[in-house]
Structure formats: C-alpha cells, structure tokens
C-alpha cells in the first residue's frame, strides 16, 4: 500500500500534528519507505492466528474501591501552561 499526500494530511489532522506542505511532502516519502518495510509482514500467512496483545497473557487484577488520593491541585498546576481559579485554561471551545 502506498500513501498519498492526502493520506498524510488526514492522518496528521487525526494526530493533531500541524504539517507544512514541504513537511507533508518529505514525510510522505519517509512514511512510504517505512510502509515498504512494514509490508514485509504480508508475506506471512496469519490466517487463524489469534492476535497477541501482551506477551505474557496474564489477567487483570482489580483494585478495591477506596479513595487513596488527596488533593494536590496546587502542586500539579505548578506545571500547567495556563491555569486560573483552579481550572486549566484553553482558548475558547465552541460547542
């Protein structure tokens, strides 16, 4: 499968990565060479092979329903680009 620059633009949009036209062109070539590498997978017949998401196939342990966290808002918001009145601020969102 080979990508077009429309693919790259669509994917960049989904990933919220702003790309200039020049970057799109450059990226396109690189992504296509990576996809050529990746496409080597297709030579293996994987019919009826169950996908493996985790190498060890363990099962999840569940946590008891207890409140263990305390308010650390001030500490956490020290690292925020913009916060006021306890809220994180972003440019106005139109719904």
């Amino acid at each position: 499968m080979s990508l077009t620059s429309d693919h790259v633009k669509r994917v960049a949009k989904l990933a919220r990565l702003g790309l200039t036209d020049a970057e799109t062109t450059e990226t396109l070539t690189q992504l296509n060479s990576i996809l050529d590498l990746v496409d080597q997978m297709q030579r293996i017949n994987t019919k009826d092979v169950v996908p493996l998401a985790h190498p060890l196939e363990l099962k999840q342990t569940l946590r008891a329903d207890e409140v263990t966290e305390m308010d650390q808002r001030e500490k956490f918001q020290n690292t925020a680009p913009q916060a006021d009145d306890g809220l994180y601020l972003v440019p106005r969102v139109v719904e």
Partner: peptide, 26 residues
C-alpha cells in the same frame, strides 16, 4: 463507586475544581 474507575480519587460531586484530579486523572 467511592473512587474512580482507574484511580483512587474521590467521585464526590461538587468539589472545588480539579481538587479530585489525581496524577492518573490528569
């Protein structure tokens, strides 16, 4: 539940903004 689905933060309604937002919730 008392705590959140993936963290130990309280789920109480009406607390000060972000006072029940832990590392995980953030």
């Amino acid at each position: 539940t008392n705590s959140k689905i993936f963290s130990g933060s309280s789920t109480d309604f009406g607390a000060e903004p972000n006072s029940q937002a832990s590392l995980i919730d953030l």
